[in-house]
Simulated assay, not measured.
Amino acid sequence: MREQQLSWEQAIVEGSLEWAFLRREDLGEVAELCAAIEYFDDPTQHRELSGLTDDFDRPWAYPTNHAVVGRDRGGTIVAYGWNHITPPDDPLPHAWMEIGVHPAWRHHKIGYKLVGWLIDRARAWYLHLRESRPELGPLWVGCATDEGSRVSTDLEENGLLKPQRWFFDAHRSLTDEPLPLVVPPPGIELRTFERAWSEKVRTAHNIAFGTRHGAHDVPQAAWEASLERPDSRPDWSWIAVCTDDPGAGVVGYAVNCEIIERQSGWREGWTERIGVIPDYQRQGLARALLAASMHTFADHGCTLAGIGIDTDNLPETESLFAGMGYRLEDRVVLFGATFED
Protein backbone atom coordinates (compact mmCIF):
# COMPACT_ATOMS: atom_id res chain seq x y z
CA MET A 1 0.00 0.00 0.00
CA ARG A 2 1.43 3.39 -1.01
CA GLU A 3 2.04 6.01 1.66
CA GLN A 4 -0.42 8.90 1.30
CA GLN A 5 1.21 12.33 1.10
CA LEU A 6 -1.80 14.10 2.62
CA SER A 7 -4.18 13.09 5.35
CA TRP A 8 -7.86 12.75 4.50
CA GLU A 9 -8.67 15.89 6.51
CA GLN A 10 -6.24 18.21 4.69
CA ALA A 11 -7.33 20.54 1.90
CA ILE A 12 -3.94 22.25 1.40
CA VAL A 13 -2.82 22.08 -2.23
CA GLU A 14 0.05 24.63 -2.23
CA GLY A 15 1.15 27.75 -0.37
CA SER A 16 0.15 30.76 -2.45
CA LEU A 17 -3.61 30.47 -1.75
CA GLU A 18 -5.82 29.75 1.24
CA TRP A 19 -7.39 26.33 0.59
CA ALA A 20 -10.62 24.85 1.95
CA PHE A 21 -13.04 22.12 0.98
CA LEU A 22 -15.88 23.20 -1.31
CA ARG A 23 -19.12 24.29 0.38
CA ARG A 24 -22.52 24.75 -1.22
CA GLU A 25 -22.38 28.50 -0.64
CA ASP A 26 -19.18 28.62 -2.73
CA LEU A 27 -20.88 27.44 -5.93
CA GLY A 28 -21.94 30.87 -7.14
CA GLU A 29 -18.40 32.16 -6.87
CA VAL A 30 -17.03 29.03 -8.58
CA ALA A 31 -19.49 29.66 -11.43
CA GLU A 32 -18.15 33.23 -11.72
CA LEU A 33 -14.60 31.86 -11.83
CA CYS A 34 -15.62 29.45 -14.60
CA ALA A 35 -17.11 32.35 -16.57
CA ALA A 36 -13.85 34.31 -16.24
CA ILE A 37 -11.81 31.31 -17.38
CA GLU A 38 -14.13 30.77 -20.35
CA TYR A 39 -13.83 34.45 -21.35
CA PHE A 40 -10.05 34.03 -21.72
CA ASP A 41 -9.86 30.44 -22.98
CA ASP A 42 -13.12 29.87 -24.94
CA PRO A 43 -13.13 26.15 -24.07
CA THR A 44 -15.21 23.50 -25.80
CA GLN A 45 -16.93 22.59 -22.55
CA HIS A 46 -18.74 25.17 -20.43
CA ARG A 47 -19.73 25.18 -16.75
CA GLU A 48 -22.70 27.03 -15.29
CA LEU A 49 -24.15 27.30 -11.79
CA SER A 50 -26.98 24.85 -12.55
CA GLY A 51 -24.56 22.10 -13.55
CA LEU A 52 -22.27 22.73 -10.60
CA THR A 53 -25.27 22.56 -8.26
CA ASP A 54 -26.49 19.30 -9.82
CA ASP A 55 -23.06 17.76 -9.34
CA PHE A 56 -22.83 19.00 -5.75
CA ASP A 57 -26.23 17.51 -4.88
CA ARG A 58 -25.64 14.00 -6.24
CA PRO A 59 -26.21 11.60 -3.32
CA TRP A 60 -22.79 9.93 -3.68
CA ALA A 61 -20.76 13.05 -4.61
CA TYR A 62 -19.52 14.11 -1.11
CA PRO A 63 -18.00 17.28 -2.59
CA THR A 64 -17.02 18.54 0.85
CA ASN A 65 -14.49 15.69 0.80
CA HIS A 66 -13.55 15.62 -2.88
CA ALA A 67 -13.43 19.26 -4.00
CA VAL A 68 -11.33 22.24 -2.89
CA VAL A 69 -11.28 25.97 -3.55
CA GLY A 70 -8.32 28.31 -3.29
CA ARG A 71 -8.81 31.95 -2.23
CA ASP A 72 -6.46 34.89 -2.66
CA ARG A 73 -5.66 37.31 0.18
CA GLY A 74 -8.85 39.24 -0.53
CA GLY A 75 -10.95 36.10 -0.06
CA THR A 76 -11.84 35.64 -3.74
CA ILE A 77 -11.92 32.10 -5.16
CA VAL A 78 -9.32 31.97 -7.95
CA ALA A 79 -8.84 28.20 -8.26
CA TYR A 80 -10.73 24.98 -7.66
CA GLY A 81 -10.33 21.24 -8.12
CA TRP A 82 -13.05 18.60 -7.99
CA ASN A 83 -13.04 14.81 -8.19
CA HIS A 84 -16.39 13.58 -9.48
CA ILE A 85 -16.60 10.04 -8.10
CA THR A 86 -18.76 7.09 -9.06
CA PRO A 87 -21.39 5.62 -6.69
CA PRO A 88 -19.93 3.46 -3.90
CA ASP A 89 -21.49 0.27 -5.30
CA ASP A 90 -19.74 0.62 -8.67
CA PRO A 91 -17.44 -2.41 -9.07
CA LEU A 92 -14.97 -0.31 -11.10
CA PRO A 93 -14.62 3.03 -9.29
CA HIS A 94 -13.85 6.13 -11.35
CA ALA A 95 -12.80 9.66 -10.43
CA TRP A 96 -13.25 12.40 -13.06
CA MET A 97 -11.04 15.40 -12.35
CA GLU A 98 -12.17 18.99 -12.93
CA ILE A 99 -9.69 21.86 -12.59
CA GLY A 100 -10.05 25.62 -12.94
CA VAL A 101 -7.47 28.35 -12.28
CA HIS A 102 -7.93 32.04 -13.03
CA PRO A 103 -5.49 33.09 -15.78
CA ALA A 104 -3.93 35.73 -13.49
CA TRP A 105 -2.79 32.95 -11.11
CA ARG A 106 -1.51 30.35 -13.55
CA HIS A 107 2.12 31.46 -13.23
CA HIS A 108 2.10 29.92 -9.73
CA LYS A 109 1.65 26.44 -11.31
CA ILE A 110 -1.46 25.96 -9.20
CA GLY A 111 -3.09 23.76 -11.85
CA TYR A 112 -0.09 21.44 -11.91
CA LYS A 113 -0.27 21.08 -8.13
CA LEU A 114 -4.03 20.54 -8.23
CA VAL A 115 -3.49 17.62 -10.61
CA GLY A 116 -1.23 15.92 -8.07
CA TRP A 117 -3.55 16.67 -5.16
CA LEU A 118 -6.61 15.31 -6.96
CA ILE A 119 -4.85 12.11 -8.02
CA ASP A 120 -3.66 11.54 -4.45
CA ARG A 121 -7.16 12.30 -3.20
CA ALA A 122 -8.73 9.79 -5.59
CA ARG A 123 -6.28 7.10 -4.57
CA ALA A 124 -6.93 7.75 -0.88
CA TRP A 125 -10.67 7.42 -1.54
CA TYR A 126 -10.07 4.16 -3.38
CA LEU A 127 -8.02 2.70 -0.54
CA HIS A 128 -10.80 3.72 1.84
CA LEU A 129 -13.31 1.79 -0.29
CA ARG A 130 -11.02 -1.22 -0.44
CA GLU A 131 -10.96 -1.52 3.34
CA SER A 132 -14.56 -2.77 3.31
CA ARG A 133 -14.68 -4.07 -0.28
CA PRO A 134 -11.41 -5.87 -1.07
CA GLU A 135 -12.99 -7.37 -4.21
CA LEU A 136 -13.14 -3.96 -5.92
CA GLY A 137 -11.61 -3.67 -9.35
CA PRO A 138 -8.90 -1.09 -10.09
CA LEU A 139 -9.48 2.65 -9.84
CA TRP A 140 -9.56 4.74 -13.01
CA VAL A 141 -8.76 8.46 -12.77
CA GLY A 142 -9.32 10.74 -15.74
CA CYS A 143 -9.71 14.30 -16.94
CA ALA A 144 -11.15 15.60 -20.23
CA THR A 145 -9.83 18.96 -21.43
CA ASP A 146 -9.20 20.92 -24.60
CA GLU A 147 -6.05 19.75 -26.33
CA GLY A 148 -3.35 22.38 -25.91
CA SER A 149 -5.07 24.03 -22.94
CA ARG A 150 -3.28 24.94 -19.71
CA VAL A 151 -4.99 22.02 -17.95
CA SER A 152 -3.68 19.73 -20.69
CA THR A 153 -0.17 21.10 -20.10
CA ASP A 154 -0.50 20.56 -16.35
CA LEU A 155 -1.59 16.96 -16.90
CA GLU A 156 1.29 16.32 -19.28
CA GLU A 157 3.80 17.78 -16.82
CA ASN A 158 2.43 15.64 -13.98
CA GLY A 159 2.77 12.59 -16.22
CA LEU A 160 0.64 10.09 -14.27
CA LEU A 161 -2.36 10.38 -16.60
CA LYS A 162 -1.85 9.64 -20.30
CA PRO A 163 -3.95 10.61 -23.37
CA GLN A 164 -6.43 7.78 -23.99
CA ARG A 165 -9.21 9.18 -26.20
CA TRP A 166 -9.96 12.24 -28.31
CA PHE A 167 -13.31 13.90 -29.01
CA PHE A 168 -14.02 16.46 -31.73
CA ASP A 169 -16.59 17.54 -34.30
CA ALA A 170 -16.04 17.50 -38.05
CA HIS A 171 -18.00 19.15 -40.87
CA ARG A 172 -17.85 19.22 -44.65
CA SER A 173 -19.76 20.87 -47.48
CA LEU A 174 -22.03 18.73 -49.64
CA THR A 175 -22.11 21.27 -52.47
CA ASP A 176 -18.62 22.75 -52.89
CA GLU A 177 -16.82 19.60 -53.97
CA PRO A 178 -17.69 16.14 -55.35
CA LEU A 179 -18.97 13.59 -52.87
CA PRO A 180 -16.90 10.43 -52.31
CA LEU A 181 -17.95 7.24 -54.03
CA VAL A 182 -19.75 4.56 -52.00
CA VAL A 183 -17.46 1.53 -52.22
CA PRO A 184 -18.20 -1.15 -49.59
CA PRO A 185 -15.61 -3.90 -49.02
CA PRO A 186 -16.06 -7.20 -50.90
CA GLY A 187 -18.75 -9.39 -49.38
CA ILE A 188 -20.43 -6.44 -47.61
CA GLU A 189 -23.78 -4.97 -48.64
CA LEU A 190 -25.07 -1.58 -47.51
CA ARG A 191 -28.79 -1.33 -46.83
CA THR A 192 -30.99 1.52 -45.68
CA PHE A 193 -31.91 1.28 -42.02
CA GLU A 194 -35.33 -0.16 -41.16
CA ARG A 195 -36.82 -0.30 -37.69
CA ALA A 196 -36.94 -4.10 -37.87
CA TRP A 197 -33.11 -3.97 -37.73
CA SER A 198 -33.01 -1.67 -34.69
CA GLU A 199 -32.11 -4.25 -32.05
CA LYS A 200 -29.42 -5.83 -34.22
CA VAL A 201 -27.91 -2.41 -34.86
CA ARG A 202 -27.92 -1.67 -31.12
CA THR A 203 -26.15 -4.96 -30.49
CA ALA A 204 -23.55 -4.12 -33.14
CA HIS A 205 -23.03 -0.69 -31.54
CA ASN A 206 -22.41 -2.20 -28.10
CA ILE A 207 -19.96 -4.69 -29.62
CA ALA A 208 -18.14 -2.01 -31.64
CA PHE A 209 -17.56 0.21 -28.60
CA GLY A 210 -17.32 -2.50 -25.95
CA THR A 211 -13.52 -2.45 -25.89
CA ARG A 212 -13.29 1.29 -25.10
CA HIS A 213 -12.28 2.11 -21.55
CA GLY A 214 -15.28 3.25 -19.56
CA ALA A 215 -17.73 2.20 -22.27
CA HIS A 216 -21.21 1.15 -21.21
CA ASP A 217 -23.80 -0.69 -23.29
CA VAL A 218 -26.62 1.50 -24.60
CA PRO A 219 -29.84 0.10 -23.07
CA GLN A 220 -32.70 -0.77 -25.39
CA ALA A 221 -35.00 1.93 -23.96
CA ALA A 222 -32.40 4.67 -24.46
CA TRP A 223 -31.63 3.44 -27.97
CA GLU A 224 -35.27 3.44 -29.03
CA ALA A 225 -35.84 6.86 -27.44
CA SER A 226 -32.98 8.29 -29.52
CA LEU A 227 -34.65 7.05 -32.70
CA GLU A 228 -37.93 8.71 -31.71
CA ARG A 229 -36.46 12.20 -31.29
CA PRO A 230 -37.88 14.82 -33.70
CA ASP A 231 -34.45 15.40 -35.26
CA SER A 232 -33.70 11.69 -35.71
CA ARG A 233 -33.68 10.43 -39.30
CA PRO A 234 -33.69 6.61 -39.24
CA ASP A 235 -34.68 6.63 -42.91
CA TRP A 236 -31.44 8.51 -43.71
CA SER A 237 -29.39 5.87 -41.88
CA TRP A 238 -27.42 2.88 -43.17
CA ILE A 239 -26.42 -0.58 -42.05
CA ALA A 240 -23.85 -3.05 -43.37
CA VAL A 241 -24.44 -6.79 -43.57
CA CYS A 242 -22.05 -9.54 -44.61
CA THR A 243 -23.39 -11.44 -47.63
CA ASP A 244 -20.62 -14.04 -47.29
CA ASP A 245 -21.73 -14.85 -43.74
CA PRO A 246 -25.46 -14.20 -43.21
CA GLY A 247 -25.13 -15.29 -39.60
CA ALA A 248 -22.83 -12.36 -38.84
CA GLY A 249 -25.81 -10.02 -38.66
CA VAL A 250 -25.16 -6.26 -38.72
CA VAL A 251 -21.42 -5.59 -38.95
CA GLY A 252 -21.52 -1.81 -39.33
CA TYR A 253 -23.94 1.09 -39.15
CA ALA A 254 -24.37 4.84 -39.50
CA VAL A 255 -27.33 6.25 -37.57
CA ASN A 256 -28.13 9.78 -38.71
CA CYS A 257 -30.14 12.82 -37.70
CA GLU A 258 -30.71 16.36 -38.99
CA ILE A 259 -29.64 19.73 -37.60
CA ILE A 260 -31.60 22.77 -38.75
CA GLU A 261 -30.39 26.29 -38.00
CA ARG A 262 -33.68 28.12 -37.58
CA GLN A 263 -32.53 31.66 -38.32
CA SER A 264 -30.43 31.02 -41.43
CA GLY A 265 -32.29 27.92 -42.55
CA TRP A 266 -29.23 25.83 -43.32
CA ARG A 267 -29.56 22.08 -42.83
CA GLU A 268 -26.85 19.65 -41.84
CA GLY A 269 -27.02 15.88 -41.96
CA TRP A 270 -25.41 14.64 -38.77
CA THR A 271 -23.98 11.16 -38.23
CA GLU A 272 -24.92 10.53 -34.62
CA ARG A 273 -23.54 7.01 -34.29
CA ILE A 274 -21.17 5.12 -36.55
CA GLY A 275 -19.37 1.89 -35.83
CA VAL A 276 -17.91 -1.31 -37.24
CA ILE A 277 -17.58 -4.49 -35.20
CA PRO A 278 -13.94 -5.53 -34.63
CA ASP A 279 -13.71 -8.38 -37.15
CA TYR A 280 -14.69 -6.03 -40.00
CA GLN A 281 -12.65 -2.96 -39.13
CA ARG A 282 -9.86 -1.46 -41.28
CA GLN A 283 -11.46 -2.66 -44.53
CA GLY A 284 -12.95 0.66 -45.67
CA LEU A 285 -16.42 -0.01 -44.28
CA ALA A 286 -16.63 3.15 -42.17
CA ARG A 287 -15.66 5.19 -45.23
CA ALA A 288 -18.43 3.54 -47.27
CA LEU A 289 -21.03 4.19 -44.55
CA LEU A 290 -20.01 7.85 -44.32
CA ALA A 291 -20.12 8.26 -48.11
CA ALA A 292 -23.58 6.66 -48.29
CA SER A 293 -24.76 9.02 -45.56
CA MET A 294 -23.40 12.06 -47.42
CA HIS A 295 -25.29 11.13 -50.58
CA THR A 296 -28.48 10.66 -48.56
CA PHE A 297 -28.04 14.03 -46.86
CA ALA A 298 -27.55 15.75 -50.21
CA ASP A 299 -30.58 13.97 -51.70
CA HIS A 300 -32.70 15.41 -48.85
CA GLY A 301 -31.50 18.97 -49.40
CA CYS A 302 -28.78 19.30 -46.76
CA THR A 303 -25.78 21.45 -47.62
CA LEU A 304 -23.50 20.19 -44.84
CA ALA A 305 -22.49 16.86 -43.32
CA GLY A 306 -21.23 16.62 -39.76
CA ILE A 307 -20.21 14.11 -37.13
CA GLY A 308 -19.05 13.99 -33.51
CA ILE A 309 -15.96 11.80 -33.21
CA ASP A 310 -14.76 9.67 -30.30
CA THR A 311 -11.51 7.83 -31.02
CA ASP A 312 -8.60 6.18 -29.28
CA ASN A 313 -6.56 6.17 -32.52
CA LEU A 314 -6.05 9.82 -33.44
CA PRO A 315 -3.76 9.48 -36.53
CA GLU A 316 -6.00 6.89 -38.19
CA THR A 317 -9.16 8.87 -37.46
CA GLU A 318 -7.69 12.15 -38.72
CA SER A 319 -6.61 10.42 -41.92
CA LEU A 320 -10.08 8.93 -42.47
CA PHE A 321 -12.09 12.11 -42.00
CA ALA A 322 -9.66 14.57 -43.57
CA GLY A 323 -9.45 12.25 -46.56
CA MET A 324 -13.23 12.49 -46.96
CA GLY A 325 -13.23 16.28 -46.95
CA TYR A 326 -14.19 16.95 -43.34
CA ARG A 327 -12.85 19.99 -41.49
CA LEU A 328 -11.74 18.89 -38.04
CA GLU A 329 -12.54 21.26 -35.17
CA ASP A 330 -10.85 21.77 -31.78
CA ARG A 331 -10.18 18.53 -29.97
CA VAL A 332 -10.94 17.46 -26.42
CA VAL A 333 -8.47 14.91 -25.08
CA LEU A 334 -9.21 12.44 -22.31
CA PHE A 335 -6.26 11.77 -20.01
CA GLY A 336 -6.54 8.70 -17.80
CA ALA A 337 -4.74 6.03 -15.82
CA THR A 338 -5.60 2.96 -13.77
CA PHE A 339 -4.41 2.50 -10.18
CA GLU A 340 -4.59 -0.54 -7.94
CA ASP A 341 -3.26 1.13 -4.78
Rank of each mutant, 00 (worst) to 15 (best):
242 C>W: 15
242 C>E: 11
244 D>R: 07
245 D>T: 08
246 P>A: 05
246 P>L: 03
246 P>N: 13
246 P>E: 09
247 G>A: 02
248 A>M: 02
248 A>H: 06
249 G>M: 06
252 G>A: 12
253 Y>W: 01
253 Y>N: 01
254 A>P: 12
255 V>A: 11
256 N>F: 13
257 C>V: 14
260 I>K: 04
260 I>L: 14
261 E>C: 07
264 S>N: 15
266 W>I: 13
267 R>M: 05
267 R>G: 00
267 R>T: 06
268 E>I: 00
268 E>K: 14
270 W>P: 03
270 W>A: 07
271 T>W: 15
273 R>M: 10
273 R>H: 13
274 I>S: 11
275 G>M: 14
275 G>A: 06
275 G>L: 11
276 V>H: 10
276 V>L: 13
277 I>G: 13
277 I>S: 02
277 I>E: 11
278 P>W: 01
279 D>H: 00
279 D>W: 06
280 Y>T: 07
280 Y>S: 09
280 Y>F: 06
282 R>M: 07
282 R>G: 10
282 R>A: 09
284 G>C: 05
286 A>F: 04
287 R>M: 01
287 R>C: 00
288 A>H: 07
289 L>H: 02
290 L>Y: 14
291 A>P: 15
292 A>M: 07
293 S>W: 04
294 M>N: 05
295 H>E: 14
296 T>I: 09
298 A>D: 01
299 D>M: 07
299 D>A: 15
299 D>T: 15
301 G>Q: 07
302 C>F: 09
302 C>W: 12
304 L>R: 11
305 A>M: 07
305 A>V: 02
306 G>C: 02
306 G>N: 12
306 G>T: 03
307 I>Y: 06
307 I>R: 04
308 G>M: 14
309 I>T: 12
310 D>N: 06
310 D>M: 05
313 N>G: 09
313 N>W: 00
314 L>Q: 14
314 L>K: 14
315 P>T: 09
315 P>H: 08
